[in-house]
Structure formats: C-alpha cells, structure tokens
Design a binder for these strands. Structure first.
Length: 653
RNA sequence: GCCGACAUAGCUCAGCUGGUAGAGCAACUGAUUCGUAAUCAGUAGGUCCCCGGUUCAAAUCCGGGUGUCGGCUCCA
C-alpha cells in the first residue's frame, strides 16, 4: 500500500499527500494559507467532513469556505451545540434532545419542567457568545453504540438514549461524538474547526414543541436562534425581518381598510369596503378568465346532510375539521353527536360531483369544467389560526374538471396556461413540484396500475410544458398524484398556493360516468384545481408582495384628487365625478390641509395616483398626476389622464 | 388542542414597589387658502380584554376565561 494518496481538486488538478495528513494541514501546506483560514469544512468525494479528518485514500477534495451558504448551515448547527452546552451549564438538570440547523438559523429542543423566560434567553445568548469567544475546538470521536448508550445514560440523557436506539434500529454500528469544552453531543457532523469561527449568535424566541412533533409526546422547550459569520450579516438579517414586519398583511390589512378580525369570529375575516373591492376585482378577473377558457360557474349549497360526506369519505377522515350543525327536527332522545347531522361544507368537490350526476353525460361534452367561488368552513385548531393565511372561513377559485383519461395532458397544459397568465400578471415567479403516490399502500386508494397511469399522465403533461419541476416523491394525496405551484414573492419568500390533483377515487365513490363513442359507460377522471388557491391567502400574499401598494388595476382607490386650496374644489369635484362616471375608483380630498399634507396622506394610503388640481389645472381643464412613490408627471388634460388609466389600470386578464 | 408571551383611546405606546388613567398621531371645531411627504389653536375621546378573588383601595396582585402573537421533526 502506497503511503501517499492522490487528492483531486475541483479544478481537476491532482496533488499527493502523505496518507493520514489532516485535511486542514494539507490545505495549508499544498494549496494556500488563505484558503486554510477561510475553510470551514470539506467534502471528500462529495461527502461533508471535518477539516480535522485525515486523508486516507485517493479522493476528490472540495474545501467549503465561510463564503458558502453550506458553511453557514454548518456554523448554525455548531451554534446549536454551543447554545445547548451553555443551557446545560446555566440550568442543571435540563436534558438535551435535538438541535438542527434550519433555513434561517437553528433551534434546540430541551426537556425541562420550567419554561425559559425572555430573561433566560438574554442570559443564554450572552453566555453563548462568550463560549464562542473562548474559541474551543470541536473534537470528533467515533464510539460504539454500547459506549454511547453508557455515556448518555450516565449523563441522565434519556432522549439521547432513545435516539441511539433508533439509530441502532437503522443498522448503524458506531456513533460520532462531538465535544467542545467539557460538553458532548452526538451528530453526523461535520462541524467547524472551533467555536470561535461561528461568529455571532442571536436568540430569537422560545416556543413549546412536542417531542418528535407528536402531540401525544412530552412538551419540550424549543429555543430558536440564528448565527452569522459577522455582525453585519446579522444586522442585514434583522433589517429584513423588520421589513417583513412592516409588510405583514395582518398589520397592513386593517390599516388600509382591507379587512379586520373580531374576537367573536376567530379565524373569519370582516371584509371592509376597500378589501371587498379588492376581493371582488380578483374574483371578477378570474371569472372572465375561466369563462373564456371553457369553465362554467355554478353555486352550490353551503349546508349539507352528512350523507354526502359519508359518501365522499370526509365523514370518516375529515369530520374533526367540519363545523357540524344540529338538525332540530331530529329525534331529541338521540345523543347530540347523532343529532349533529348537518355540516357546513369544507370543500366544493362533492357538490360538483352531484351536479355532474344530474344529467347523463356524453364523451362529446367532456371536459366538463365547473367553477365555484363559495364560502367554505374548516374548523382549524384555535392555536393554528393566524391572519388571512390560516382561517376558518374562506373561498377558493375552485374548479373540478371531468375528463377522459386521454384528455389529461391537454387539460393540465391548459390549467398551467392559466397559472402563467395569472402569476405573470402579478410578477410572481413560480416553480412546479410533482408529488407522487404515498409510499404506504394503506395510505392510498387504487392499485399500482392506476397510479402508474395517473403519474404517467401527469408526468407527460409536465414534460410537454417545458417548465422546470422538481420531484416530491410520496407526497401525493391519497386519491392521486398532484402538481403544486410554489410561488416566490418580492421578498423571496415561498408560498405553496395552487395545486392540480388527479383523482381516480371520487368518480368511483360517486359512480360518475359518461357515454363513450362505443355507447358504453366509462369513468371520467376528476381534476381538482385552484389558481389563486384561497382568496384570503392570496390577498395576504399580494398585500405583502406589494407592501400594500397594489398596482393601479387592483388598488381599491386608484386616484385621489388633491385640491391646492378650496378655490379649486369645483374643478376637483368635476375631475372626480367624471373619472368615477367612467368607472374609475376615485376620491376627492377637499380638506383644508396644505398640499404637502394631502400628498403625504395619499402616499400613506398607498393610492397609485394623486391628482393635483390648482390654478393652472383649472385654467387648462387638466390634472397633474403624481405616482405613488414620488414620480411627478407633467400636467395633462383630464382625458389624457383617463387614457393613462385605461392603459395602466385595466385588469390584465 | 398543547407550550410560552402579550392585551391601556381608532393607531403607536407611557403609566415605578397597589392610591381617582397620560402623550403623539388620527377624529371633531375654529382659524389659515397654501403647488408635490405633516399649518396653527382648541375640543372630545377609556368597561385599562371579560368574569371572579385578595385589599380600606386593583390597569397594577391572584385564579379562571377569551382573543392575538411565536411555535408544535427542515428528524443524530
């Protein structure tokens, strides 16, 4: 066996090193001191490893420096370890569980009878940063599972012992320990070289979290934090959080008169005049779009007898989420549970199936596309309600499309076309995620042949679209595979909005059929789809995306006329009236405020156009528009402004 | 639902260890008639989330409830 190993670098060049050389020493000696200083961890043949590991075989070596997002991810995991060590020092008797790095930071779950207070958090943060300053090396050690159990059992860490049991069941024989200072935890690694390299840690919040996320398990204390290599990056992150807070639809919605909540109706919004305008504009635009695309709008009952839900299967699996209603003519001697035999609909699908069944269908009329904007109710857990994104009452731009199997690819393409039109109009990027059958056959209906067919059809449709998509194996609905649209807003946040779901099960349950060209009965396939998703959630996304400054076509008030003084109110009034008569949404500010104040108020109300009217404008029968955001347009005749509105404020679809 | 925090005027917030509730903005009234992000003065506005308890006395302390917010596996 040669006592040198060949190390291939990312640029393709190869170097030799004595077998057993530490990666960090190799980098320092054979590549450069600068890289060694910036290095955080490394990859050997693509596998992440500590810099303290040795080169024992020929391998490709990639050095990951603190410039890489991957290094930050590792550093945050390092930070979780350091914080946990500090917590155990400060609060003896606290047990550790898990502490992963997450998208914007890290968390660590602790088992401790007493919750952490905000003051505790401050103390922990301070001590964590002190431990970082102490620059303790992370030391890796591999031990047998028996040794590990003995170690953690001895420390009284019963959650850790439980995790080791899981690891043993997965077939592992050894465990890697990481120590810093006198503290020890186990994890896959890698870690950075030492605590000092982490940078700066900021603790964000405490929260309860169930062990393994299951409400049946013990409640743990979770501490969320984040870490950055330098303070500046941390401050940028905190500034971004501030910006998010400013854009929060829960704040902007009531402030702009869009919607409000009241404690007598948790989870159900009151739509105020401006919000109702916005809601209706979105609904009207969608109605026009779908009616041009072969959809038929229908309205169905809100209240149904439970027999419908028994047939659809909801009564078994979804009953917890439905609002049940007492049938007062039911037998009073029956238990209340049985008298609650009516329910508010949580979904539109079954009623669309019933409409489909109200006539005998021919292959000639497929695809049949029903569209409904009706109020739906779902009884979400009180603790999960929040703003417009998690509500109990909402409406979807919901459709169910009945197709022959051969029509699936065309129909999916057609639906995706709608998505492109709509999301393009809002400047929202989206990516596609294809979810396939749940892995456990017990969690799905239909045999493998059916699933093969359904997945094949969706995949074929995806390929034809030519849009990039990623696979999300095993995440399909129990009745069929689906395509999810993940939208990215102006702040880079991702939202799962609409889905296209193939459903082979519902046609069976409801015995749906159509007469084919062979004059025999066939089963159609149902496609569930929504473009906005729910109006409530979509308005929340748009509000934050636009920071409340909606484009002119959507703005509840499109223009506000500002008179320079009340000598010009008559022309101001006429401007407002004439624009309103043409269907534009206009207000007049004839208060005795000075122009500067009127401008300011119009800006704060995020109205797209402020129309200044003074002496010049009266003489010229003109207005001087000023865009939200400050751009001052030249004075123009009123008709020219109306033309500008026609160009900019007409719904794009 | 569970864990934690919070709840004072329309909004943003102050109100110390218990002693008759305050500011700014908004609103209203008056004056001002003004050219691109705040004119001045005055007036009014409160079930201190709700229900109990302790106390001579509760926004404040205690208990219960409601609502809101942060969370409740991105799995060593």
């Amino acid at each position: 066996m040669a006592d040198v190993v060949k190390v291939t670098l990312p640029d393709g060049s190869a170097k030799e090193a004595p077998r057993g050389t530490r990666i960090l020493d190799f980098v320092k000696g054979s590549i450069g001191a600068g890289l060694a200083k910036a290095a955080y961890f490394a990859k050997l043949d693509g596998e992440p490893v500590d810099l303290s590991r040795t080169l024992d075989r020929d391998a490709r070596l990639e050095v990951v420096t603190t410039k890489s997002p991957e290094a930050l991810e590792v550093a945050r995991h390092d930070a979780a370890h350091v914080m946990a060590s500090v917590v155990q020092k400060l609060y003896p008797g606290t047990q550790v569980t898990i502490g992963p790095s997450i998208e914007e930071g890290f968390y660590y779950d602790f088992a401790r009878a007493q919750p952490f207070t905000p003051e505790d958090l401050e103390a922990i943060e301070k001590a964590t940063n002190e431990a970082i300053a102490a620059d303790l090396p992370f030391v890796r050690e591999e031990v047998s599972l028996e040794e590990a159990v003995a170690l953690f059992d001895g420390l009284g860490e019963k959650y850790k012992v439980e995790i080791i049991g899981d690891i043993a069941r997965k077939g592992a024989k050894t465990l890697t320990l990481y120590r810093h200072g006198g503290w020890v935890d186990f994890c896959l690694g890698p870690h950075g070289p030492s605590t000092g390299r982490i940078g700066v840690v900021k603790l964000m919040s405490v929260a309860g979290a169930y062990w393994r996320g299951d409400a049946k398990n013990a409640m743990l204390q979770r501490i969320y934090g984040t870490a950055f290599f330098d303070r500046k990056a941390l401050e940028a992150h905190l500034a971004r959080l501030e910006e998010l807070k400013k854009r929060d639809h829960r704040k902007l919605g009531p402030a702009l008169g869009l919607f409000a909540f009241h404690e007598v109706a948790p989870g159900s919004a009151f739509w105020l005049p401006h919000g109702t305008t916005l809601y209706n504009l979105l609904a009207d635009a969608m109605r026009r779009l779908v009616s041009r695309n072969g959809y038929q709008e229908v309205k169905t009952p809100l209240l149904f007898h439970k027999r419908l839900w028994e047939q659809s299967g909801h009564w078994g699996v979804y009953r917890e989420n439905m609002f049940l209603v007492l049938d007062k003519e039911s037998d009073p001697s029956l238990p209340v549970e049985e008298r609650l035999s009516m329910s508010l609909k949580p979904m539109n699908c079954p009623s669309h199936y019933l409409i489909y069944k109200m006539a005998r269908r021919s292959y000639r009329e497929l695809p049949v596309r029903y569209f409904t904007v009706d109020v739906l109710h779902r009884n979400e857990l009180s603790g999960s309600l929040g703003g417009l994104t998690r509500v109990r009452q909402f409406a979807q731009d919901d459709s169910h499309i009945f197709v022959m199997e051969s029509q699936i690819p065309d129909e999916v393409e057609r639906i995706t076309g709608l998505m492109k039109t709509v999301y393009g109009a809002f400047g929202l990027e989206f990516t596609l995620r294809f979810s396939t059958r749940p892995p456990n056959p017990a969690d799905r209906v239909g045999d493998d042949a059916l699933w093969d067919k359904a997945e094949g059809a969706l995949r074929a449709a995806l390929d034809r679209l030519g849009l990039p998509w990623e696979l999300n194996p095993g995440d399909g609905a129990f009745y069929g595979p689906k395509i999810d649209f993940v939208v990215t807003d102006s702040l880079g946040r991702k939202w799962q909005t609409c889905t296209i779901q193939l459903d082979y099960a519902a046609p069976e349950r409801f015995d749906l059929s159509y007469a084919g060209d062979d004059n025999r009965e066939h089963r159609p396939v149902v496609i569930h789809r929504a473009v906005y998703g729910s109006f409530e959630r979509f308005i929340a996304i748009l509000t934050e995306h636009y920071a409340g400054a909606f484009p002119a076509w959507l703005a509840p008030v499109q223009a506000r006329v500002l008179t320079v003084s009340d000598r010009f109110d008559a022309w101001g009034r006429e401007v407002a009236d004439r624009l309103a008569a043409q269907g534009w949404r206009v207000e007049l500010d004839h208060s005795s405020d000075k122009l500067g104040a009127k401008i300011r108020n119009a800006q704060l109300a995020k109205i797209p156009f402020a129309l200044v009217v003074g002496e010049k404008e009266v003489e010229a029968k003109a207005v001087s528009p000023r865009r939200h955001g400050g751009a001052d347009l030249q004075s123009m005749p009123l008709d020219a402004f109306a033309e500008l509105l026609r160009r900019e404020a007409t719904p794009p679809f």
